[in-house]
């Protein structure tokens, strides 16, 4: 059955259609939410709320974007909103213990642990872009639509996020930009602050 037909039936409240939509998208939605909110209990809660919001608002889905983009916009916003609430409640960002349950299926669990831990240390919106692009394979246009930014902003956030990840994953002995694990976006540029840096920055697209 075509997805638009499935959506139409789900809109009419047919349980089987809703379930098929859920089964088609649940894993990816949960993965994005899980990696943005960074802890399993909150992720389960947020993912459930995302689906409820999506299904309540299915009538407003006009098919102008792909269903998966529309659904992920709700998911990403729900996850970022949870992070904001958590920070407000805590007064400061607290480190969140990684759950290894998520990386057991990896071919190399140790590498996956390191990647997930590095992901947790990247600023929230950068992490969202990195997860959506490099892990989930969305385009910058789709990510821009989800986050309410331009494709160019999505690109620029992605490049910063990748550079931060690289710095976090590089062994401590390396000299290049080893101080990148702070939340300051311009750390890398400061370290290479030379006249040519402006040229390199100008070459960003």
């Amino acid at each position: 059955m075509r997805e638009d037909e499935l959506i139409e039936r789900a809109r009419r409240g047919e349980s089987a259609a809703v379930r098929r939509l859920y089964e088609a998208h649940a894993e990816r939605v949960y993965a994005v939410v899980r990696r943005i909110v960074a802890d399993r209990a909150s992720a389960e809660d947020v993912a459930q709320e995302v689906w409820l919001r999506a299904l309540r608002g299915l009538g407003s889905f006009r098919g102008e974007s792909r269903f998966t983009t529309w659904l992920h916009r709700i998911a990403v916003n729900g996850a970022l909103q949870r992070l904001r609430q958590r920070k407000r409640a805590a007064g400061r960002e607290v480190p969140i213990p990684i759950s290894l349950a998520d990386v057991r299926r990896a071919p190399d669990p140790l590498l996956s642990v390191r990647l997930e831990r590095a992901l947790d240390r990247i600023p929230d919106r950068m992490r969202a872009v990195l997860v959506l692009h490099d892990v989930e394979g969305f385009t910058h246009e789709e990510i821009g639509e989800m986050l309410g930014v331009t494709a160019g902003t999505s690109k620029s956030q992605l490049f910063k996020a990748r550079a931060k990840m690289r710095a976090l994953l590089r062994p401590p002995r390396a000299e290049r930009n080893s101080d990148m694990d702070t939340d300051t976006d311009t750390d890398t540029e400061r370290r290479h602050a030379t006249p040519d840096t402006r040229d390199a920055r100008a070459s960003h697209r």
């Binding site: 859920y22 949960y30 990386v103 990896a106 990195l130």
Partner: peptide, 16 residues
């Protein structure tokens, strides 16, 4: 490449 290979976290068993 390693990020692309990250496995999706398992869905909660009673999600649906």
């Amino acid at each position: 490449a390693a990020l692309r290979e990250l496995p999706a976290p398992p869905l909660p068993p009673d999600g649906w």
